[in-house]
Design a protein around this nucleic acid. Structure first.
Lengths: 156, 156
DNA sequence: GCCGGCCATCCGCTGTAGCGGATAAGCCTG
DNA sequence: CAGGCTTATCCGCTACAGCGGATGGCCGGC
């Protein structure tokens, strides 16, 4: 059927795009990225609530987009984004810049570290950063000089 | 009917409460407060999208609560609240780990740490965790024992 | 070659979000 | 107190969110 021509509203199937982006962020290796079936399983295991593979496909392709509250919450819970990510474009724009971080959070230990680092004093944080930088050097990883990076306004 | 059979609804209809509160806030004079029919008209006029009086009643009485994205947006638009106002009821309690993390991510240094920790070896991560735990102890923060947490299904 | 698994995609079904059209019980004012 | 105007509440319907179960196309292994 003629796709894309019935767009009376500007929003289109933007929700599908967002979900696709989140999937790509969560499974960066495109080769080993799970299909909708596996993804559905992961969601059930991680959140305790299931979303069928069929429906996931329908969402990502924009075939369905008027999701209910429960589905919305489950998706947000799984991807680790605030639920309003799917509702408010400004929020999603802000979160998108942090997708890199979301990738990091895949690792459970990294999550623990982030949680534990919160609230510590500046000095301690600096020390931890120094240690991490040193460790990255030893383990031959990218220096990852994030502090130099600008928050880059994408024209708002 | 006997609604006691399904004990899953411990928080009743939190969404209905919220809508009721918003109505009361928007029309402070209880005497001149419009009924659901008038309210439905106001919503249509103000937002351009309609919500039937019947459905408004069903929402405020908690009969329906799994609203879709469009209804949610319309309500938020009309009442002038961010859409997430209707989203984080009891789920916020269940996913408070996520929330804690979101809060943590406000700190730029914590972000840097999370990014830098990604990709490091298990041993290094364990060392960092040990250091962080020690630091938390010294700075008198909560132990934050996330790893002990069970996946605990709260009666699905 | 064939078998088994994973994949995207489709079809058809069920449950329920959401609505329109009753109804009866409150009100006004003449 | 009749008759009109609202109100909250109910019932039954339609549309669609969401799912289960096909289907056929691609892989790798025996």
């Amino acid at each position: 059927m003629d796709p894309g021509k019935h767009a009376a509203e500007r929003s289109e199937s933007e929700l599908g795009q967002k979900i696709n982006r989140l999937i790509a962020a969560m499974y960066p290796d495109e080769r080993s990225r799970p299909g909708f079936a596996k993804l559905s399983q992961h969601i059930r295991e991680a959140t305790g609530t299931a979303i069928s593979s069929t429906y996931l496909w329908e969402l990502t392709t924009g075939r369905k987009q008027n999701v209910t509250r429960s589905t919305l919450t489950t998706l947000a819970k799984f991807f680790g984004v605030p639920p309003e990510y799917f509702l408010d474009d400004r929020v999603s724009a802000r979160v998108d810049t942090q997708l890199e971080l979301a990738v990091a959070l895949r690792n459970r230990k990294v999550r623990s570290i982030a949680l534990r680092a919160d609230g510590l004093s500046e000095e301690t944080l600096n020390s931890i950063l120094a240690i991490l930088n040193h460790a990255r050097e030893i383990e031959k990883l990218d220096p990852l000089d994030e502090d130099n990076r600008q928050p880059s306004e994408p024209s708002a």
